[in-house]
Design a binder for these strands. Structure first.
Lengths: 160, 160
DNA sequence: ACAAACAACCGTATTTAATACGGATAGAAT
DNA sequence: ATTCTATCCGTATTAAATACGGTTGTTTGT
């Protein structure tokens, strides 16, 4: 597991505010040369620290303004059943993200839909049609805030 | 509210699999010229359909492998109290994302921490120190899958 | 019906960024 | 001391992004 120094951490911070920032801009912000910054960024990708970059799409303007978190409990949640349901639900067009959890539920599914009727239909038609689904419960999401400052637990000082 | 045609939708799909894909690659994939693709992409940004791009960082390799969804209920959840707590919790370093919800809870907070002890400390020290917090409950997240095919609810045919 | 205005698309030329490569410096190992 | 390695950077080259103008086709107005 790679431990990261201050320069790596600074690069991650810059790219988190905007993953499409140019390498030159990142370099200027962190106070290193473009070459060094590119080397570091590539290394972070190769080490798997940076897994990719995701487009942040406004759900209202693509006609899906209603968000919900749907808690799902399975009947007899064996590994096979969990993985089956996980794969199925994560590929539905309504789904934004899937959390596989422990606790009182087995899944929490984040969905975005055009309106409340679609949400109701999704719950009672699509989810409940799966025989292994024992229970579902929806919480409407009014707001979804991301923290764009995801920092490493500990950072090694830069060897100067 | 902008309705999007097939070309816009195709561009969004391409950039969702990798937000750093070059404009030329996107153009080749959607079957349009780089110029047209750049025009469209810029327009999508200006219209607010594309809000930005987020780096996908591997939480294990930055020393925060333990994820949880923490359900929070406030005492007397007025607007002011909700917004206060929202702003406070969303800026904590442990927080990845915050959902403001209706239902049996007021918030669902997605956090990433180094280990289970840190999670316990976060719950009983940090959250419970806030007087307006009436109740908290954690679900450990074993897996977090994102759907990288977030498509518009309806797409207008391209005027050809 | 006709002309004007507009929208969508693309090609070319220019500017800017990404990349490859090699050199310099410094610390660690032998 | 010398070699090895890691880190950083500058330069030259390649590739992409951008600005701009031209073409086509559709809508708008008279």
């Amino acid at each position: 597991m790679p431990d990261l120094d201050e320069l790596d951490t600074a690069i991650l911070a810059e790219l988190q505010s905007d993953a499409r920032k140019t390498n030159r801009d990142v370099a200027a912000a962190v106070g290193a040369s473009p070459t060094t910054t590119l080397d570091r960024t590539r290394a972070l990708r190769e080490k798997g620290v940076i897994r990719g970059s995701v487009l942040d799409v406004d759900l209202d303007s693509i006609g899906r303004p209603v968000q919900a978190l749907i808690t799902v409990r399975l009947d007899r949640p064996s590994r096979a059943r969990i993985e089956d349901f996980r794969d199925w639900v994560s590929s539905l067009p309504e789904t934004l993200a899937v959390f596989v959890t422990s606790g009182q539920e087995d899944f929490i599914v984040h969905v975005a839909l055009p309106d409340n009727n679609s949400l109701y239909a999704f719950m009672v038609d699509r989810l409940t049609e799966r025989p292994e689904v024992a229970d579902v419960r929806a919480s409407i999401v009014y707001e979804h805030l991301r923290n764009d400052r995801v920092t490493p637990a500990n950072t090694r000082p830069r060897k100067d």
